[in-house]
Simulated scan of single mutants.
Amino acid sequence: MIRKDDPVNVLGEVLSPCSDADPVTGFFRDGHCNTCPEDQGSHTVCALMTAEFLAFSKYVGNDLSTPRPEYGFAGLRPGDQWCLCAARFLQAHDEGCAPQVRLSATHMRALDIIPLDVLQEHGAD
Rank of each mutant, 00 (worst) to 15 (best):
L84E: 11
W82I: 06
Y59S: 13
D39F: 05
G96A: 06
W82V: 04
F53Y: 15
D39E: 08
F53G: 00
P78K: 11
R88E: 08
A92K: 02
Q81Y: 14
F53D: 01
R68H: 13
L76C: 02
R68N: 12
L84G: 01
R77P: 04
Y71N: 13
C83R: 05
A86W: 01
T44C: 11
E52Y: 07
T66V: 03
A86V: 11
R68T: 11
N62E: 15
N62F: 15
E70S: 13
Y59L: 13
S42R: 14
R68P: 00
D94M: 13
L54F: 07
A86F: 05
S42E: 12
C85A: 14
V45R: 05
A86Y: 06
L48Y: 13
V45L: 04
V45W: 03
E70N: 13
T66D: 08
G61A: 11
C85H: 08
N62Y: 15
C83D: 04
P67I: 02
M49R: 07
S65M: 10
T66K: 07
L48I: 15
D94I: 09
E52N: 09
G61D: 11
G79P: 03
F56N: 02
A86T: 13
C46A: 07
R77G: 04
L90P: 09
Q81N: 12
P69G: 01
Q91G: 12
A47N: 07
